[in-house]
Design a protein around this nucleic acid. Sequence first.
DNA 1: AATGAATGAGAGTTCATTCAT
DNA 2: TATGAATGAACTCTCATTCAT
Lengths: 215, 215, 215, 215
Amino acid sequence: MAKRIAEPAVPVQDTEPDGPRLTKGERTRARLVAAAEEVFGEGTYDEASIVEITRRAGVSQGTFYLYFPSKLDIFREVVRDLGHQLRMRLSVAVQGAETRAEIERRGFIEFFTFIEEHPEMYRIIRQAEFVDRDSYRAHYERLAAGYVEGLSKGMAAGQVRVMDPEAVAYCLMGLAEIIGMRWILWDGGGGRMPKTVVESILDFIYHGLLPADRS
Amino acid sequence: MAKRIAEPAVPVQDTEPDGPRLTKGERTRARLVAAAEEVFGEGTYDEASIVEITRRAGVSQGTFYLYFPSKLDIFREVVRDLGHQLRMRLSVAVQGAETRAEIERRGFIEFFTFIEEHPEMYRIIRQAEFVDRDSYRAHYERLAAGYVEGLSKGMAAGQVRVMDPEAVAYCLMGLAEIIGMRWILWDGGGGRMPKTVVESILDFIYHGLLPADRS
Amino acid sequence: MAKRIAEPAVPVQDTEPDGPRLTKGERTRARLVAAAEEVFGEGTYDEASIVEITRRAGVSQGTFYLYFPSKLDIFREVVRDLGHQLRMRLSVAVQGAETRAEIERRGFIEFFTFIEEHPEMYRIIRQAEFVDRDSYRAHYERLAAGYVEGLSKGMAAGQVRVMDPEAVAYCLMGLAEIIGMRWILWDGGGGRMPKTVVESILDFIYHGLLPADRS
Amino acid sequence: MAKRIAEPAVPVQDTEPDGPRLTKGERTRARLVAAAEEVFGEGTYDEASIVEITRRAGVSQGTFYLYFPSKLDIFREVVRDLGHQLRMRLSVAVQGAETRAEIERRGFIEFFTFIEEHPEMYRIIRQAEFVDRDSYRAHYERLAAGYVEGLSKGMAAGQVRVMDPEAVAYCLMGLAEIIGMRWILWDGGGGRMPKTVVESILDFIYHGLLPADRS
DNA sequence: AATGAATGAGAGTTCATTCAT
DNA sequence: TATGAATGAACTCTCATTCAT
């Protein structure tokens, strides 16, 4: 990380737009979380250092421990936070979609957009697998829960072939992730999904889910 | 003396079964790789230490640097090695399968078996994403290459719907991985895939790949 | 927020029984000293932290420095305080004793009782040897002073063999301390002195002090 | 500690008088123990820092952990070592003494001499009470054991009044310690015991131990 | 071909203390 | 009279790596 080289960091402005509503402490805490999100996103959990997080947040090292008991704890918070953001975005995106195909299309596209916007989110959550398996598992379970619900309804309504809904939910998540990795993150990090890839995937999923008699 | 703290785990035998065929140096090297595979599989890349690797290999720390220029280098070798093993097993498993469905069935089942047998392999390869992205990418590209070839033939032969073959290959890999993680690794680590889950996935894939006019 | 990590142990009541007589400030100060006595008694001077003292006293860290300029200062006060308590108890205990033997018996028993009741007092005063030698020395000098006075009178009256009274005073203090340590503190912390040990010691002292021609 | 100021320390000579007999590692270890003895003797256990110990030993901080797993472990070793030295000296000193009085005289004088020569030994052992109670207790138990044996014989032979020998042993140790503290350490640290004090104590002990009918 | 010894940078964490409000 | 927030120096300990033998 180039950041290793110690520059005096941004002189902290205490009069930020959203300042007045929060206490001073709450603002500091928020700055720490934001900084941590950045730093964890750039390298390994182990490469990320408290020194760097506090430097970017514009506070001293001691201050960190006023708000988080340990490095692991802020990592957990960051994972929780990112998962929450993702779920919000997805649930908003699929609102109002009528057919299963439409839901999947909107969901997948929103997911890819999110990763394009927050490529670091990807790194962080996947690292949780090694750093704090519980956070990681919780993330997927929460995400899967929504999916399972939707798929079950679709099966009941005859729009989706009857299969183990949890298995299918995980298939779709795994699939979306690896595709995002391959076409967004690998290709320079700022890549966008090629249209033909998106269409192929949606096609694959569409037929994979569709009840036999409908095809 | 250092011995107080940790003594060599295994008194090293220099006359091992496969000894005679290799030079002393080659045997030492092999022992180091084997030890590294163990150690990397147990924790994080950062948690794994050269001390521990050499201790298990029964050699001194200095010896390590006779064979590998750095910790990262032996990690790369381990990743390459595991990927190689996996590809061999898969290619043997699908040999002789006639239909696309049969190929997928055999491939998936072999993959899950491999993970059940080497859960640590999973940890190691996924860590490569953060530790040495090139190894990681190379692993998937090699794996994808075989898949793409098979799928392209299937499409040409009209057994598989025409889609971007690389996109589909990655879909299948991502799907297999997350399922392996959820049902093998999470459930205690020694879990086996439930039948209904396997069948649901194969069903999903089968319809996902099938050409429309065949259904 | 810091509260995550530690909340005030006791919701502080400002209307305590002995409240009305003292100003608010005096009560806060007293609470701090009491808390410090507890905390210093539990571990090392260095292990004791201002955070913990203020937490138990139910005040903020900043408040501490309103009453004491430093950690060392409150430690000194605690030592002074404990020494004072001890001297009071001893002087009350020996009041009315007629012979030297009786004085020693009552004094020693009272001392052991005090240690049984306040084992932490012991830890604190002995630590002063390292933390603040002046407090420590002052404690012993004050204690010795009383002893020297009594012994000198005894010598003048022919009840005690003529020796350097200060040397004898220190002998008796050192002897009492180590015995208290061995039989009260070591044996589980809540131990009581065995009778035979007490009698042996008193016997030893008795003959040690007795004038030769009397024996 | 003035030593806090970082001076490049003594450039280490590798060809010391007792060099040839020990391996390089053993010499380093010995240097660390010697340095630790110095440093622990100067201040608190907590004030003593690994930095300072290694600086005086002329090795890097990392080297420390090649020989000792932790700061506490080297402290323990130092305590054991000092106790051993002391016991050796005492046993040599009393060798050949015939009467009980002679034994006590020689023992006490040797003890005071030892403290005059190693005032730091005193600090270190007493600190063990707080730092590692087991070391501390073990020290006294070992010292007491020898005493108890001698006293028991004396009682059997009718040279010493019959009392609980362990109680008496601890009395004598406690007494010696406090006297050493008061007249050697307090008076400037380099003090010597005044003759009259020594005589008073021996007198006190003599009569304390003497069987009644003999006096 | 192998080892024992040493290094030194860097990590996470703690804590007495200060100060604006 | 009291607090919440912040500081920064100091600490113990780990580890990949180097090198003389």
